[in-house]
Design a binder for these strands. Structure first.
Lengths: 203, 203
DNA sequence: TAACAATGTTGTCAATGGAAACATCCTGCA
DNA sequence: TGCAGGATGTTTCCATTGACAACATTGTTA
């Protein structure tokens, strides 16, 4: 080997796809989707600007892969929260809701990317599957509530829609993790309560 | 005037700002935010590529103006829906909810732009004001419900949060205006009912 | 009528995504 | 064990973009 050799890395990166996804997530959260560029990611990872094209068909494909990874991690977080021991159904539902909010607040830009990717016509099948898996946790928990007599009979997917949509919307409506200065985490129990009991006065 | 003159438009457009905003909204809904470019908009409107800079500080400023316009139109739609005569509070609330969903479904890309613009650090004051005005319609209606004894006492902003968030989330969760094949319009009455009555069985 | 402001145009630059052609390394098979 | 092919890099090029500077035209006001 030449003593003058200046290469700091072998020709083959070895794990470029994963490295690019990691760099993309860091850049996404730091600078937002608009400022995310393949060339900048390549520089950060230390490869030439067209290497990403060997692992992703185009820029959109990289973003789709990142969104899919996000859904997989959300699914894991929700599944863990739903499995946590809690005798009270209301507490279990609140735990699931908190896990959802925490994920969204911890990965704000990724969360937006996930939703955008999910909605785009032509979104890859794997991405939609990962999204469906993540969003299946709430109906599953509703089913256990129905079995315990805590929830009215009916389609769990439809019944969990109100809570799922409310949590989703809560994140969208909030700014910097707060709604009118109140941290979202503090609002979750009230939302769960409203969804379970409604807003109408009980007579 | 030379018979050979080829200009099809006087030097001053006369209403370029508005024309650019209109072209931008059309392009946004047709091609998405990613494919929206100032040069393309300029070509469509028939001016040179840097004319927009005379009306908008930069590309982001044009997008912010578009989002603000969106909030103003949403506000008008919600205010009109809330004013519609309906003796039953539940019907009035459902009308407001429907108006919100209709706006989001009619302007899907603009709706996303509005949310993104609202969240961005450094968002213009006028934009945030327009957003606040639009989202004040729901608490106002909740207040009338409280006056009629239809809603539990409490902060109307907090109480309307569940419904507002649920509607917001409903749009985000849906794809192509549907949730599991069901049009959103058909889901709204159920969502309103769940929010008013809750999911818990009444005993 | 002239000065100034508003609103256009032209030209330039740096950065980007994507494509083509080429280079290097790794794996599998004869 | 060597070679072919595949995987994964690099280099070069092109078209397009956003933004900036300088200039041109028109409208308004004093």
């Amino acid at each position: 080997m030449s003593m003058l050799q200046t290469n700091s890395r072998p020709y083959h990166h070895g794990n470029l796809r994963q490295a690019l996804l990691q760099a993309a997530e860091t850049a996404l959260e730091a600078r937002g989707a608009t400022m995310l560029s393949l060339r900048e990611l390549s520089r950060e990872v230390g490869v030439s600007h067209t290497s990403p094209r060997r692992h992703f068909a185009d820029k959109q494909a990289l973003l789709d892969a990142l969104a899919q990874s996000g859904f997989q991690r959300l699914d894991a977080a929700l599944a863990a929260a739903a499995k946590a021991r809690a005798r009270n159904f209301s507490v279990r539902l609140t735990n699931l809701a908190q896990a959802y909010i925490e994920f969204a607040l911890k990965h704000p830009a990724l969360w937006v990317l996930m939703l955008e990717a999910k909605h785009r016509p032509g979104a890859p099948r794997e991405l939609l599957d990962a999204s469906d898996a993540a969003f299946s946790n709430a109906p599953a928990l509703i089913r256990t509530g129905q079995a315990e007599g805590e929830i009215v009979p009916g389609d769990p997917a439809r019944l969990s829609l109100t809570l799922g949509a409310a949590l989703q919307g809560l994140v969208s409506i909030s700014t910097e993790g707060k709604f009118k200065g109140v941290p979202l985490e503090a609002l979750v129990p009230g939302i769960v309560k409203h969804v379970l009991l409604g807003l109408r006065p009980r007579s």
